[in-house]
Amino acid sequence: MTPEEIDQLVAENVRAARARRRLRQEDLADEMGWSRPTVSALEAGTRRVTVADAAALCVALGIDLRELLRGADEDVVRALGLES
């Protein structure tokens, strides 16, 4: 997967997890200490997530890293040590 494909995948998974928790973008932004436009950019796939961001997103959304990367190619999952 390209970095851009991973960005898009993370964006979709964040959006889905936020929706499941019935959070608005503003709610997630508050939880993260971000602005709403930052959350919007993340969910659009135009903001790259750092490892620190990924950890904070997982806490804020009540998910684990596997869920954040759901749908990633097996080589990506394996490279991160997340194989089942």
Results as ranks from 00 to 15, higher is better:
Q8E: 12
R66I: 00
V51Y: 09
D30C: 06
R48P: 04
R70D: 14
E83M: 03
T46F: 05
S40G: 15
D27M: 07
T50S: 15
E26Y: 04
R47G: 04
E4S: 11
L23Q: 15
E83K: 04
D75N: 11
G45K: 06
T2L: 05
V77Y: 00
E31I: 04
R22D: 15
A54D: 02
R48Y: 05
A41R: 14
I63K: 00
I6K: 12
L82H: 03
G62R: 00
L9R: 15
R24T: 15
R78S: 13
L42G: 02
L65C: 00
D73P: 09
S40T: 13
T38H: 13
M1T: 11
L57M: 06
V49W: 07
A55Y: 11
Q8F: 07
T2F: 02
V10G: 05
S40D: 12
W34K: 12
A60L: 00
N13C: 09
T50C: 01
R78T: 14
A72R: 02
M1K: 04
R24H: 14
N13H: 08
A19F: 06
A41I: 02
G71S: 12
L23W: 14
R24P: 05
A29F: 07
E67Q: 14
L9A: 10
R20V: 13
L65T: 01
E83G: 05
Q8L: 14
A16F: 02
V39F: 08
R36S: 11
A56W: 01
R24F: 10
A19L: 12
E43R: 03
V10E: 06
V10W: 09
D53A: 04
L9C: 10
R48E: 07
E31H: 07
R24G: 09
V51N: 05
T46V: 14
L69H: 02
E12V: 06
A72G: 05
L57K: 04
V14E: 08
G33C: 02
R70K: 14
D53P: 06
S40M: 08
R22G: 06
V76A: 05
G62P: 02
R18I: 08
D64P: 04
R20F: 07
E83I: 01
A44S: 15
A19G: 10
G71R: 09
G62A: 01
L65P: 00
L57T: 04
A56K: 13
L69T: 01
L68D: 08
A16S: 09
P3M: 11
A52V: 11
V39H: 10
E43G: 02
A17Y: 07
L9F: 09
D30M: 11
